[in-house]
């Protein structure tokens, strides 16, 4: 998934080969991860697709089934993986994930601890951020879940960046051999305050901790615990609103009259190329964006804190 291996790097020259993991895209809300295997076929409502036909094609290509239906074959990214992975637990999505990765200040070379692993949605993005020289140590107390996550990281090619441990972090804390090595710690636990002490021991001074909790009561208790060793304790909620775009018909007179607020502004800022496009479309139709109907609601609160730097 990651271009750390130059031969796997996405490029005009890189084509789909036997054994690759591809994301089969039917629609924006219907995708599936498939391991390409020369002798295998994919069957869906569009027909039967032979993997053998895919090999040698570029990523992003459109492929056809025996009866003319088609799908796209995409190179996997952590964002796509989040949409196709098998849910063994509730998972984190793009808005929370990207905010966490940024706020934890993860860059190549960082060491980050995570608990629990869950379905590995966040883990995949964490490893993208710290590759190629950093490492993610992720822990889950559920043995089968940890094993399934390990298999997933094998499939997505992240095994060298991620170590999955079976451990009850709330009960036992993080392993002592990681003491003082972590640049960042992420907690997604029912009682995060039980793990905060241990997390503090793992972090380098000024390292960042994030705790994800769905309920404000959990946040409050965590914040109280954090206050003794951490600074900059801040809690956020981040949501994502998507817009749909439609071409709508609009009365010519109305647009000329300048009733909709955006039109005059738009005209003012257009330069040659813009106005050319606009002329083709003006009067008869206009492109409009409006918020999508369904939006994901509350997922959880993100509480961040920095380990106090003791002189």
């Amino acid at each position: 998934m990651l271009p750390t291996d130059p031969t796997k790097k996405l490029s005009f020259k890189r084509n789909i080969s036997d054994g690759d993991l591809v994301i089969v895209y039917e629609k924006h809300d219907n995708m599936k991860a498939v391991k390409v295997c020369e002798k295998s076929v994919l069957e869906n409502r569009f027909g039967i697709f032979k993997h053998a036909d895919w090999i040698g094609k570029p990523y992003g290509c459109k492929v056809s089934s025996h009866k003319g239906g088609f799908v796209y074959l995409l190179a996997p990214t952590p964002e796509l993986w989040t949409l196709v992975l098998s849910h063994r637990t509730q998972i984190l999505y793009i808005a929370d994930i990207s905010f966490v990765v940024m706020y934890l200040e993860l860059i190549p070379g960082c060491v980050v601890l995570e608990s629990g692993t869950g379905s590995g949605s966040l883990t995949t993005s964490l490893s993208r951020a710290i590759a190629p020289t950093g490492h993610v140590h992720t822990f889950d107390f559920h043995e089968q879940r940890a094993a399934a996550a390990r298999e997933d990281f094998e499939r997505t090619g992240l095994s060298s960046l991620v170590t999955v441990g079976v451990r009850d972090i709330q009960g036992e804390g993080f392993p002592k051999d990681l003491t003082g090595l972590a640049d960042a710690v992420f907690l997604d636990l029912p009682q995060p305050w039980l793990a905060i002490g241990s997390a503090g021991e793992m972090l380098k001074p000024d390292g960042v901790l994030c705790s994800f909790s769905p309920c404000i009561e959990q946040v409050q208790r965590s914040s109280e615990t954090l206050a003794s060793n951490f600074t900059d304790i801040r809690t956020f909620e981040v949501l994502l609103r998507t817009y749909e775009v439609r071409e709508g018909k609009m009365d010519h007179c109305q647009t000329e009259g300048g009733t909709p607020g955006s039109r005059p502004c738009k005209r003012k800022h257009r330069t040659s190329e813009g106005s050319q496009w606009e002329q083709e479309h003006s009067g008869s139709s206009i492109v409009m964006a409006r918020p999508s109907g369904e939006a994901k609601g509350h997922t959880g609160y993100l509480t961040f804190a920095r380990l106090r730097c003791v002189a």
Binding site: Y25, S223, T242, E244, V287, T303
Partner: peptide, 25 residues
């Protein structure tokens, strides 16, 4: 819209994040 009409891309999205900070402590 142009990308859709010209069939130049798939998986198109316009998104806007919404961030709120809470006073918890």
């Amino acid at each position: 819209h142009n990308l859709q009409v010209e069939k130049m891309a798939i998986g198109l999205q316009i998104t806007e994040p919404w961030l709120r900070e809470y006073q918890c402590n």
